[in-house]
């Protein structure tokens, strides 16, 4: 479970998020929605420990972010990321990209690629595969360490509707707490929990 208490975020004098409080249940599928510039990506960065809030606290199963100890280790073992752009490293193969955060799980990587239907791409480079395939590789990379929490920032922003459907159905089927930031209204309806932001406020 993730508990957000009075979280605010400022850059200089500008406050981006204003005293947000909400709870995300374990193994639920959650959507953070809102227009561009509403603060979705900033909130996602805070929830995923990439950004420390200027004010307020975030608890993970009752433990405050500041008390988690080594955040790198926490991120590596408990969190999986899927970005709007696939963010695969160009000079690494599909397999090497997946193993970037976990060098010893080759079999797991192959299993994931099979599950995602892209096992034949194992030795290809990112520029040799399609946009939809790249995003599936990014999903495999996010899942390699069997994380408790999956964060996805506009994961289908660069995909056509067919590939978008595939990615969302994959995300919904995951055995983890999934938090997706999107402004795609068609996707919002099929979630367990919707967190809607407008100008940094919860609606």
């Amino acid at each position: 479970m993730i508990e957000v208490k009075d979280v605010s975020q400022s850059y200089g004098n500008e406050e981006i998020l204003h005293k947000l409080s909400f709870t995300i249940e374990k193994k639920s599928f959650n959507v953070i929605s809102g227009e561009s510039g509403s603060g979705k990506s900033t909130l996602l960065s805070i929830l995923s420990t990439l950004l420390k809030p200027t004010y307020g606290k975030v608890f993970y199963d009752g433990i405050a972010m500041g008390d988690l100890g080594n955040l790198n280790k926490f991120r590596n073992q408990k969190i999986g990321f899927i970005f709007q752009f696939h963010y695969l490293i160009a000079h690494l193969t599909v397999l090497e990209n997946i193993l970037l955060a976990s060098g010893k799980s080759r079999d797991r990587a192959i299993d994931l690629l099979k599950e995602l239907g892209i096992e034949s791409l194992v030795n290809r480079f990112p520029h040799e595969i399609s946009g939809g395939q790249r995003q599936r590789v990014a999903i495999a990379r996010a899942l390699i360490n069997k994380p408790q929490y999956i964060f996805a920032d506009e994961p289908t922003g660069n995909l056509d509707s067919k590939n978008s459907d595939t990615v969302f159905s994959l995300l919904r089927g995951l055995d983890a707490t999934v938090i997706v930031a999107t402004h795609d209204k068609n996707r919002i309806l099929k979630s367990d929990n919707i967190i809607t932001l407008k100008d940094g406020y919860l609606c």
């Binding site: 790198n72 590596n76 990321f81 955060a101 990379r141």
Partner: peptide, 14 residues
Amino acid sequence: AFEFGIKRALGISK
């Protein structure tokens, strides 16, 4: 920068 940013986001230590 992008490559190192991804690595940091994936929990690879400084």
